[in-house]
Design a protein around this nucleic acid. Structure first.
Lengths: 217, 217
DNA sequence: TTCGTCATGTAATGGGTTACATGATTAC
DNA sequence: GTAATCATGTAACCCATTACATGACGAA
């Protein structure tokens, strides 16, 4: 019944917000554009799409030869079933985007959240980045403590593994530091007068794309 | 019925080979010593222990006040149920250690395999390290290809995410390069005359630990 | 005596994959 | 015409978590 993974739902909604697509294409995008972190199979995707339809967040459209130039362009071929975000779906996605619960910076969620930072308001971006950072720092503390407790009893390979693991985390912290700094720099430049986009990274604006009737797609 | 995860089974066998333990302690070790990669709950561990007993690889010992100094020392308190590796279990674990199927260098398995490199023969270590490396290089190729195909259509955050992901993989490749080199250096030094331990890393022998009753601690 | 941690378990549930079944379209 | 890839699904299974239930022991 349920079949809601949170992260998959989020990603699907986010991708469909950019353009309607059919399942196959959706899955590819899921596993390449965002997929460094997560790969989903059809056995997961299709049932999920079904429940999203039931919720009223997306619609299934018979796409015989849907004269949708954009979808056609994206896939290079005609579509079978095109999924399209509804107004409710868009609204729901925006709510999800605004959420900054502690989940947002856990391993599983953070990647997807970051992937849609383009549509996320600057303050939420900041909270997620900082949340992630302190999460990782906690983890580092634990690792250091456990390492101190057990250093002598561990063989060199285990030690090396642990060292490499810690360095990976430290590296991500440095990355987050840079991102946070550049977000802050962006804010300072504009003196936070605008509602909320454009940091340092979003050179082509925070939003989806040039706007207009782009999302009629 | 089944309840065999492969990686959990492997890790439990490997830990019990070093010393008998009860479930609670086992779990802690699983989640700290090796646990950078994986965390298991009791709901997973205990059923797994049951099936390992059924296979005859470990035994359950009523530990009222089992006069097992090792277990007592490890926990700092008396044990309830002490699990101990059987001869068959040891043999089985050795078979697992010798395996170099393509699974060995996948994300899920590689960490645990590496953690027990201390008991792994040098040639198997080499194959696993090299397998892992070429696995990662494949992945890099895919990432680069997909990046080249889609660069323009991606916003800066997605791009940054991808870039950071790729750098993480590249970093692991460099790490593997160093490890492989130092394994090779170890071999060259000893002119591969010995059966199979001591590379560069295993300064205190490949084996478990100094032996004797050191682990009574 | 109460709190933390040690200690062992189980049932319900979740979230996902694999393998299978099916067929259209494109490139060669 | 045949192989690859596009395209959509389902049923069986797997692995693991969560929440719960239970209780002993040590320290404050």
């Amino acid at each position: 019944m349920s079949r809601r993974s949170g992260i998959l739902e989020f990603a699907v909604l986010g991708l469909l917000r950019e353009a309607p697509m059919h399942g196959y294409e959706l899955r590819k995008r899921l596993n390449t554009s965002l997929g460094v972190f997560r790969a989903f199979s059809y056995g997961t995707l299709y049932p999920c799409l079904k429940t999203l339809v039931q919720q009223g967040w997306i619609t299934e459209e018979e796409g015989g030869l849907t004269e949708d130039p954009r979808a056609a362009a994206l896939t290079g071929r005609r579509a079978k079933i095109v999924y399209r975000l509804t107004a409710e779906g868009k609204e729901h996605f925006e709510e999800l985007l605004a959420q900054t619960g502690p989940d947002a910076w856990e391993d599983e969620h953070f990647g997807v959240r970051f992937a849609f930072f383009g549509q996320t308001s600057r303050d939420v971006r900041m909270r997620v980045l900082e949340g992630r950072r302190s999460r990782l720092e906690e983890r580092l503390d634990k690792m250091r403590a456990s390492l101190a407790r057990t250093r002598e009893r561990l063989d060199d390979y285990t030690l090396e593994l642990q060292r490499h693991g810690m360095e990976s985390v430290e590296r991500e912290v440095r990355w987050l530091n840079e991102l946070i700094e550049s977000e802050r720099a962006g804010r300072d430049q504009r003196e936070q007068r605008q509602s909320g986009d454009t940091g340092d990274l979003p050179r082509h604006r925070g939003g989806t794309r040039p706007d207009s009737s782009d999302d009629t797609t």
